[in-house]
């Protein structure tokens, strides 16, 4: 139990450090939100508008940095992130909450599917290493995972949406219908997510296969596996419960981190498939020097990753007795 308490302390300190970095880093960026906005509206915005914009964004505050820091911590604890500059005058929380479900749905499910499938395939190809399955699947998926995502996405759109109108080419749902909890809407969401999900899984699965295969080959040469074979246990049982269970441990931490990063969104997917989500928000926040939005997003990602790692530590402690033995 002490290990978990120790981890919790460490977690809290990391959160504070992350919060502080999150405050400092955006303020060290050159430029200003108004300059970014003027740049974006080149030739269309009356130069006189800069005064109006500065007044609107509240950029003429003369608060000292320590005072800003205290306000920032206080607001963060209360979940008050202020108004976004990019989506002015929308609240940061509104903007983030609008994009978050799409990201959680698409990135979450694809990460889980890629991990489960990849781990399973990695286990099988390691069990039958050198065989036909290993010879085809392993290099095949590794090659697929190195394809530039943008290119793969466009090829998929070309094949599935243009040459054959099987799947829609973009958007999270049919662009002319409204969000509702009807069966037809859920169907739309599923159909629209198919192509993006497919491309993500194809490119992500190779990594899981490779690491699982390597771990598995290591454990397969362990004595307890040889012992299990000598006892005459069923091969399936040896593969899954003896070798697989131990080989998966290092992968679990990787999976926890991947889950944590799910909330940072899928920038390229969102751009290629015009899919709503957090990834593009990130890009826009940075492009537009949108400190409030940037702070909220970075904080959100950091917290999720930290929580995921904490959970992975706990799971590891439960699965692997060695991590508990230092007491």
């Amino acid at each position: 139990m002490t290990i978990i308490v120790r981890r919790l302390w460490f977690f809290l300190i990391t959160v504070w450090a992350a919060l502080t970095l999150n405050f400092i880093l955006p303020r060290m960026m050159p430029g200003s939100p108004t300059a970014a906005l003027m740049a974006r509206y080149k030739g269309r915005l009356n130069p006189a508008a800069i005064n109006a914009l500065q007044a609107a964004f509240g950029l003429r505050t003369h608060e000292s940095l320590p005072q800003q820091y205290v306000d920032y911590l206080n607001n963060t604890i209360h979940g008050n992130f202020g108004l976004s500059v990019t989506f002015f005058p929308s609240k940061v929380s509104t903007v983030v909450l609008q994009a978050l479900p799409w990201t959680l749905f698409l990135a979450g499910t694809t990460t889980i599917i890629a991990f489960v499938l990849g781990t399973f395939i990695g286990m099988v190809v390691a069990w039958r290493r050198g065989g036909v399955v290993d010879g085809v699947l392993t290099p095949g998926f590794v090659v697929l995972s190195t394809i530039p995502y943008f290119w793969l996405g466009l090829i998929c759109i070309y094949v599935f949406s243009i040459s054959h109108s099987w799947l829609p080419m973009g958007f999270g749902y049919d662009e002319n219908s409204n969000i509702s909890l009807s069966w037809s809407f859920i169907q739309q969401v599923a159909v629209h997510a198919l192509l993006p999900a497919l491309t993500i899984i194809i490119t992500a699965i190779g990594g899981w296969i490779l690491t699982m295969r390597n771990n598995m080959i290591g454990t397969l040469s362990e004595d307890y596996v040889r012992m299990a074979r000598a006892k005459g246990l069923a091969p399936l049982r040896i593969m899954v419960l003896y070798a697989g269970r131990n080989a998966i441990l290092p992968n679990l931490t990787g999976f926890a981190m991947a889950l944590g990063f799910v909330v940072s969104g899928l920038l390229l997917t969102e751009m290629v498939f015009t899919y709503p989500g957090i990834g593009y928000l990130f890009l826009q926040a940075v492009d537009n020097e949108d400190y409030p939005l940037m702070q909220a997003l970075f904080l959100f990602v950091t917290l999720t990753v930290l929580v995921a790692i904490l959970l992975a530590d706990v799971v590891n402690a439960v699965l692997d007795p060695r991590t508990r033995s230092r007491e």
Partner: peptide
């Protein structure tokens, strides 16, 4: 009254 609205000054 609200300078932030007066985009054309």
């Amino acid at each position: 009254k609200f300078k932030g609205l007066d985009l054309n000054a």
